[in-house]
Amino acid sequence: MPAEKLKQNYSSQEKEHIFEHEFLPHIDSMYNFAYRLTFDEDDAKDLVQETYLKAFRFLNSFQQGTNAKAWLFRILKNSFINDFRKKSKQPPKVDYQEVETFYNSDNVDVSMTTDLRVETVQHMIGDEVSNALNALAVDFRTVIILCDLEGFTYEEMSKILDIPIGTVRSRLHRARNLLKEKLQAYAKSMGYNK
């Protein structure tokens, strides 16, 4: 991606303009993403702040008019993995073995094992949905957030996560199957399904 390597030389006024009009409008999505990664309001706040400071520091590597949201999400996700998770006392919630098994294949498996029903899904309330999503390992949770909540394309996700599009698809597919399992288990425990 040669375009990304081109360094800009913005004046302080231009920097301020880009920051204000291209970066700050995404703060709502950024904060929600950070919160869904950290599960803590203060941590989410720190992570977003750190991301914006980095974005400002590296503003010359950003090309005005390109996809600022994807760029910011990429910085946030890298900050979370490289700096934040190390500092945090929480153990990482990723089951690496499970993750690796599925990342090594670009093929999307087409198994459908769920007997989850549309009506069950429609009756779920926010907390139930949230618990099911939060129970997923962070890498699986991330692809669902990026795709379903934030509406990023596979190509954008591939750039944000630094993985090939085939891996985006297989990870997403796996994440969705796991989410269905969680929803199904929840529905069963609540007696939603006979």
């Binding site: 549309v118 429609q122 779920m124 309330i125 949905v129 379903d148 909540l149 269905k180």
Partner: peptide, 10 residues
């Protein structure tokens, strides 16, 4: 419906 649920209920 799962996609819609994620978009509307969280």
């Amino acid at each position: 419906s799962i996609k819609e649920m994620l978009q509307t209920k969280l």
